[in-house]
Deep mutational scan, measured.
Amino acid sequence: TQTTHELTIPNNLIGCIIGRQGANINEIRQMSGAQIKIANPVEGSSGRQVTITGSAASISLAQYLINARLSSE
């Protein structure tokens, strides 16, 4: 079954999640098997909405990979 998880990434950290020309986010997508959508910046908001869709296992793996990127910054 597909589930969806949403999280907010601070604007100053979204770059390390996306990577150069989307390299990091594509790697996270491939490794986790989850669909990951990053919302466009919202004016006045300090973060970007990230939506992860997939199986429970792929979502938790995607979250783990995202958190690993954030903590390495």
Rank of each mutant, 00 (worst) to 15 (best):
residue 29 R to P: 01
residue 22 G to A: 06
residue 22 G to P: 03
residue 60 S to A: 10
residue 68 A to F: 04
residue 11 N to H: 11
residue 4 T to M: 07
residue 51 T to V: 11
residue 30 Q to P: 01
residue 27 E to W: 08
residue 8 T to D: 15
residue 11 N to I: 06
residue 25 I to V: 05
residue 38 I to V: 09
residue 9 I to T: 01
residue 71 S to H: 04
residue 41 P to R: 13
residue 31 M to T: 10
residue 23 A to V: 09
residue 67 N to E: 09
residue 56 A to L: 13
residue 61 L to E: 14
residue 26 N to V: 05
residue 51 T to I: 09
residue 49 Q to A: 12
residue 8 T to C: 14
residue 55 S to H: 10
residue 23 A to H: 14
residue 36 I to M: 02
residue 39 A to W: 10
residue 46 S to E: 09
residue 65 L to Q: 04
residue 15 G to N: 12
residue 67 N to I: 07
residue 13 L to Q: 15
residue 48 R to I: 07
residue 70 L to K: 04
residue 35 Q to R: 13
residue 52 I to T: 02
residue 38 I to D: 01
residue 65 L to H: 15
residue 61 L to C: 13
residue 71 S to K: 11
residue 60 S to K: 10
residue 57 A to C: 11
residue 70 L to M: 06
residue 41 P to Y: 11
residue 72 S to F: 07
residue 57 A to P: 11
residue 73 E to C: 08
residue 5 H to D: 05
residue 72 S to L: 08
residue 9 I to L: 10
residue 56 A to N: 10
residue 57 A to N: 13
residue 58 S to R: 05
residue 6 E to F: 09
residue 35 Q to V: 08
residue 12 N to E: 07
residue 24 N to K: 14
residue 42 V to W: 03
residue 37 K to A: 09
residue 14 I to A: 06
residue 54 G to Q: 00
residue 18 I to Q: 01
residue 51 T to K: 12
residue 68 A to K: 15
residue 13 L to S: 11
residue 6 E to D: 04
residue 68 A to M: 11
residue 23 A to W: 04
residue 31 M to Y: 10
residue 42 V to A: 10
residue 63 Q to T: 12
residue 39 A to H: 14
residue 12 N to R: 13
residue 70 L to S: 02
residue 42 V to F: 05
residue 18 I to V: 04
residue 14 I to M: 08
residue 47 G to Y: 12
residue 18 I to L: 05
residue 29 R to D: 02
residue 22 G to R: 06
residue 15 G to Q: 07
residue 28 I to Q: 02
residue 49 Q to W: 02
residue 59 I to C: 14
residue 5 H to A: 15
residue 59 I to F: 00
residue 51 T to C: 13
residue 26 N to G: 06
residue 44 G to E: 06
residue 63 Q to S: 13
residue 27 E to F: 03
residue 10 P to S: 06
residue 45 S to T: 13
residue 57 A to V: 06
residue 29 R to K: 07
residue 5 H to R: 14
residue 61 L to M: 12
residue 2 Q to W: 13
residue 48 R to A: 09
residue 13 L to F: 09
